[in-house]
């Protein structure tokens, strides 16, 4: 086999191989490459979100009106608080992660275990919060009416407070019943029908002279346009096409369908990252417990998963800004 050994005369020189110009291990570098490409994916999503927002510059929903729930505070207008709490949870789990990495440098198994455990708990709490946020978003609060042009009309009373569909509708006797597969051909069913039909809403709106319609269009003051009573009735009669409650991928009660789509897609994709992050953290956690890294005398695996976990936190910082603040 000696014939395969080639002497190039560059041994020990810069291009002779065997040196590490970036002084980083293979695994860490690959994690960084993955993070950069993943960061570009997220930027693609967020930039597309920005594109749609610029396109619907004067009719985008106001975040504070959409995300204003807080656990155990029903009916209280609490914008920002819940998402701020979620942000703190994620930042704190990032801190415990970096503390675990730090303890790993000192080969302190007990501390690494403890901090990894806290990180996993933080991740799980965040995921739970995310689920609760989605639940509120999907169920909606007030409901709205959509028009033929795909716009959303919301209802307010004389004081400018939002009014829920349930308080407007006059239930009619001739309700159409949702078709279920058990009532006919077994494979045919339809999507869940809204609680109220558009006729019931129209009847209720006509009967209550206090009610007005709020469109999506922003005024100069950054508030949504409120139509006069006459305009409201005309708008409802001419343009209303159906009732929408909460949000799905086709339409939502908050504004342009794209708003809901991007919310689901971007927070969903981030949530998926948190989920995989928690899974990988659990794998590493058990490896720490089993003493795998103790035997290696090297806790670099904790550092690598740490990089991923911080990246997830980093993405959330941007999602937080562009969905809830700006």
């Amino acid at each position: 086999m000696e014939a395969t050994v080639v002497r190039t005369g560059t041994e020990g020189k810069t291009w002779g191989g065997g040196n590490e110009p970036l002084k980083s291990s293979y695994g860490k570098m690959m994690m960084w490459f993955f993070i950069v490409s993943d960061a570009l994916t997220f930027s693609g999503f967020l930039a597309a979100y920005g594109f749609s927002r610029f396109k619907f510059m004067d009719s985008w929903p106001i975040a504070d009106e959409v995300f204003n729930h807080f656990p155990f505070l029903h009916g209280v207008d609490a914008p920002m608080y819940y998402v701020a709490l979620m942000t703190f949870i994620l930042i704190f789990s990032s801190v415990t992660m970096v503390l675990a990495v730090d303890a790993g440098h000192q080969l302190n198994k007990a501390k690494v275990t403890f901090y990894m455990f806290l990180t996993i708990i933080g991740g799980i709490i965040f995921l739970g919060s995310q689920a609760w946020e989605w639940k509120n978003f999907i169920n909606g609060t007030y409901g709205a009416v959509y028009t033929n042009g795909g716009n959303v009309l919301q209802f307010i009373d004389g004081d400018g407070h939002r009014v829920a569909l349930a308080d407007i509708a006059i239930p009619a006797a001739s309700d159409r019943v949702e078709h279920e597969s058990k009532n006919g051909v077994w494979f045919e069913s339809e999507k869940a029908m809204p609680s109220y039909s558009i006729e019931e809403i129209k009847a209720g709106f006509a009967a209550n002279p206090d009610l007005l319609i709020r469109t999506q269009i922003m005024t100069e003051e950054g508030e949504k346009t409120i139509l006069s009573r006459e305009e409201s009735i005309a708008k409802l009669d001419n343009e209303a096409a159906g009732v929408v409650e909460g949000a799905n991928l086709t339409r939502n009660e908050y504004g342009p369908p794209l708003f809901g789509d991007f919310f689901f897609f971007i927070t969903g994709f981030h949530g998926f990252h948190v989920f995989t992050g928690v899974l990988i953290n659990i794998v590493i956690f058990f490896n720490v417990l089993l003493g795998t890294y103790e035997r290696r005398k090297n806790y670099e695996m904790v550092e690598k998963v740490g990089l991923y976990w911080h990246f997830v936190d980093l993405v959330w910082v941007f999602v937080f800004t562009f969905f809830y603040l700006v």
Partner: peptide, 29 residues
């Protein structure tokens, strides 16, 4: 990290993302 690794990560992201944002937001507007 070494300067080389840092720049490979930060500059790549910063330049590509700035360009993407510029082009998409201009088009959206």
């Amino acid at each position: 990290e070494t300067k080389g690794l840092r720049r490979a990560i930060v500059w790549t992201s910063v330049f590509l993302i700035s360009y993407l944002i510029f082009i998409l937001l201009t088009e959206g507007d």
